[in-house]
Nucleic acid binder design. Structure first.
Lengths: 134, 134
DNA sequence: CTGAATCCGAATCGATACTG
DNA sequence: CAGTATCGATTCGGATTCAG
């Protein structure tokens, strides 16, 4: 019953290996892992948004974390920041093509989540029930 | 130049909305965001592994974090844990079908990372250069 | 409006020691 | 081998205050 795994196994496409500490792709995983990165990418996926609009859209994010997350994404070339010298100042955020492609990958995760929440909750119930009397 | 976004926009497939604090899919995002979750899923994607094998594979993970991550994944029905009463004890970890499907989604991210590390590093250089004299 | 700066408790994580 | 337990160190993250 193990054969199918070896058939499915596709070796990594490049000289990279996420499992290695030294692999730069690890950083990508770390960034994606940051608490709000995914939600910001998904939020901007629908189009340009201003700071306060983005903040309103993402329930529960604080101003500090939104700023911090946006800076990180900007630094990595995933988000473009445009300042308009109005009074008061207007700042727009946008996905770059690179950010858009990562956003698409995140959207796969979102869809997965929507589809499998039920399974996960069921598993949790089972798990709790099995470990209740410990 | 905005029309294409609206054409691409596909509304969420269900009564879920990640942006809402109350949405259970947020928990999925949080779990995926946990530092080591992705790597463990990717590690087990290649087949059954024992605790120490998994630990060796994932460079830099501590024993504590591996245990903790595995417990969480087990609780959510993503990983199956099998104990063989040998001496000393043998414990095998495996992806469940659910875990396998999430692993596939994570692999999309891995591939994305491998493909775009260069772009990200370039963006970082640009960013640093632009902000050097501040 | 868009943020930067600071304070501070909470959560995370790693190293170490110990167990069946 | 496969963990559990504990203890600091660091980091995270929210609330608040201030500024251009």
């Amino acid at each position: 019953m193990l054969w199918y795994r070896y058939l499915m196994e596709t070796s990594p496409p490049a000289p990279y290996d996420v499992f290695k500490l030294s692999c730069p792709s690890r950083e990508v995983f770390v960034r994606v892992g940051e608490r709000w990165t995914g939600l910001v990418l998904l939020g901007l996926r629908q189009g340009t948004l201003r700071f306060s609009q983005l903040r309103r859209q993402i329930d529960g994010i604080s101003q500090k974390m939104l700023t911090q997350t946006l800076r990180g994404l900007e630094r990595d070339g995933l988000v473009a920041r445009t300042v308009y010298p109005t009074v008061p100042v207007t700042v727009e955020y946008d996905l770059t093509p690179l950010g858009r492609s990562l956003g698409d990958a995140m959207d796969v995760l979102r869809t997965w989540a929507y589809t499998h929440i039920g399974d996960i909750n069921a598993a949790r119930q089972t798990y709790e029930a099995a470990n209740r009397q410990l």
